[in-house]
Design a protein around this nucleic acid. Structure first.
Lengths: 368, 368
DNA sequence: CTGAAAGCGCTTACAG
DNA sequence: CTGAAAGCGCTTACAG
């Protein structure tokens, strides 16, 4: 079929051991020999059979990457980011989609023992402790993005802080009746992004002396429908729902417009929901930001187009950082697995959908 | 580290050969022996080392998938579709991003000879004949999606026909001045989707006795910017540009609104451009479809949300079909590579952005 | 139905 | 600096 190391050895008149060394750039090969080998290899279009070298050398030069679903904006970005740095370091990426708990179970059961990867990146996968233990009880290093577990390096953003920025922006514009469109999932774990973002919202209201009103908080996640499409509990579900989030945001906003004194500003936990909300407001004949200010979260591709004010998070960079961390760990043979957790910064991007509260500081004055 | 086939053999009291056969469900193993082996394997949490079995068996059980860039909607969908059926057939997917000509060159040079995959799927990659020959001059089967080359199975859609449907829809609504927002790339090959879609447009105008007017055709591709982001010439660039397309569509529409007698209907070669166009029209204070009808192409996630009339193409299904075709070819040891090319159907989805020409059949009456 | 042995194509001590 | 040989963990004829 194609040339083997033996063919090259024969052509170059050396042993296969020497070919192996010459080609991999190992020391202890005389320049002239190396030259001859390289020329022979070139001539035969030789490249090492990866499975053979991996078997012999004991490493695979590939890393496994598990994501809930590739079709969602966030995940595709993260994978792309990781793939870039992994490729640059000579690693192939093996893709695993883990759309539901069954797939997660299978991933946890099989992956660590399948010996086919040198490292693992898990994006937005919430592992219960038994799963996580199983995953780390073996020599393949793991780094998580979007979630963090004690015992593995992780890459995340500070969701509370991001939400604080968003809410504070609205408060500083004079708003007092501030709505929240959430993507809280029923049984989500405590550190899930939706809960964290809600927490930031509540923190700022408290610090501004504004009472949290339940009727100003609307779920934008269309639970039944979302569950059908993406049955897996993910940590940052908010940013990842695809077009359902548009619709969910639209409906949540519609609900907010029915309450007694509707909000003059709304923080949506994701840009997609924010864009949906935008539509509802405009369809209702109201103006943004004249009547209602809206701020999102993510800096999704659509955000710039819609002139949406938002809290930007670096998405591709989360993949890149995770990959860099992983590469470092794979090269680190000391076996000691220090658990770096890097928290990437968010930053507010003010565009055209937020503005000062209409009645100036009226509302504020109304509150003692 | 983890159990090997030898450990299982020892525990079960049989030879490794028998373990191998029992575990892979080969015939010629007595039920009781098989049972004992399976139990032992279970107990040791044994799973075969993939590199070893692949080396020995001569196949890799993985397929390589090359896409221009994973971050674009279309490509992520296609990969997800393919990954699904590949996983179901027991294949892993190795991801290659081929964002520019340099990467393409490297892919063509190395991939086929790297012996690391049993098959290849190339999405939207335009190969010149020398590249294509190199790719097919080896035993690894290739299937292309979005492009088709003589000599390899492919899955595509009929872009001409899709565009015919779109344009005919507008003509049937009584429109005569029909604009086109193109995504034609300067040096694109003849079969590239943008050209095909344009061809469909021209075909229908001709059949309706309407002259093609150059000033009603506007490029929506923001060439300089697009080139910076995605330097590779792709076949169906129109559908894949991300947010640039939104902006490009918006600008193209703005241009169309400046001509002497502006179009009463516009066919945009992609939904993203159509959505951009929608914005321009509304920002100008005009109504859709009252003043201008707009139809897109793709049935992108955003289309339903925007109530955009469009020509839907099955996107995930293109990945699924390609994967199924490839699996079939990989299982086919006859070596004869019949070149099935499957063309998936498009279908028009009428929503709220197209409507009858305002002045009824006036325009039509004006033309003999 | 089962086992002993060769072989897949490399890498890596070990000698020299 | 270079080579002979063992070994990585499986699979696959070949015997029996």
């Amino acid at each position: 079929m194609s040339a083997s190391i033996g063919d090259v050895a024969q052509l170059a008149g050396v042993s296969v051991a020497t070919v192996s060394r010459a080609i991999r750039g190992l020391p202890n090969v005389s320049p002239s020999t190396r030259d001859r080998v390289l020329r022979a290899a070139e001539q035969l279009q030789y490249s090492a059979h990866p499975h053979a070298s991996r078997l012999a050398a004991g490493h695979t030069m590939t890393v496994g990457m598990a994501v809930p679903v590739l079709t969602q904006w966030f995940f595709a970005q993260v994978v792309a980011g990781a793939e870039g740095v992994l490729a640059a370091s000579g690693y192939d990426v093996l893709l695993y989609s883990v759309p539901d708990n069954h797939a997660k179970q299978r991933f946890v059961d099989r992956m660590p023992f399948s010996k086919r990867v040198d490292g693992l990146i898990a994006v937005d996968l919430l592992f219960v402790s038994s799963e996580f233990e199983r995953l780390t009880a073996q020599p393949v290093p793991l780094v998580t993005v979007g979630t963090s577990h004690d015992g593995a390096p992780s890459v995340t953003i500070d969701n509370v802080d991001g939400a604080v920025k968003a809410t504070r922006h609205l408060v500083n514009l004079g708003h007092r009746r501030i709505g929240l469109i959430t993507h809280h999932q029923p049984h989500a774990l405590p550190f899930a992004a939706p809960l964290q973002r809600r927490r930031g919202y509540e923190l700022v209201l408290a610090e501004a002396g504004i009472t949290v009103r339940e009727n100003l908080i609307a779920p934008g996640n269309l639970m039944a429908a979302a569950r059908r499409v993406a049955p897996l509990e993910t940590a940052q579900g908010s940013s990842r729902r695809g077009s359902l989030a548009l619709q969910g945001g639209a409906e949540a906003m519609a609900q907010l417009l029915t309450v007694d004194r509707p909000p003059t500003a709304v923080f949506a936990e994701s840009d997609e929901m924010a864009v949906g909300a935008l539509k509802t407001v405009r369809d209702a004949g109201l103006h943004v930001p004249g009547d209602v200010s809206i701020i999102g979260f993510d800096d999704h591709d659509m955000a710039a187009y819609c002139d949406l004010t938002t809290v930007a998070q670096p998405v591709q960079q989360q993949g890149e950082t995770a990959a860099a961390l992983l590469v470092e760990h794979m090269h680190d043979d000391t076996g000691m697995r220090e658990t770096t957790s890097v928290v990437l910064p968010t930053k507010i991007v003010v565009r055209a959908t937020t503005g000062p509260h209409r009645s100036g500081r009226a509302d504020i004055a109304a509150v003692p």
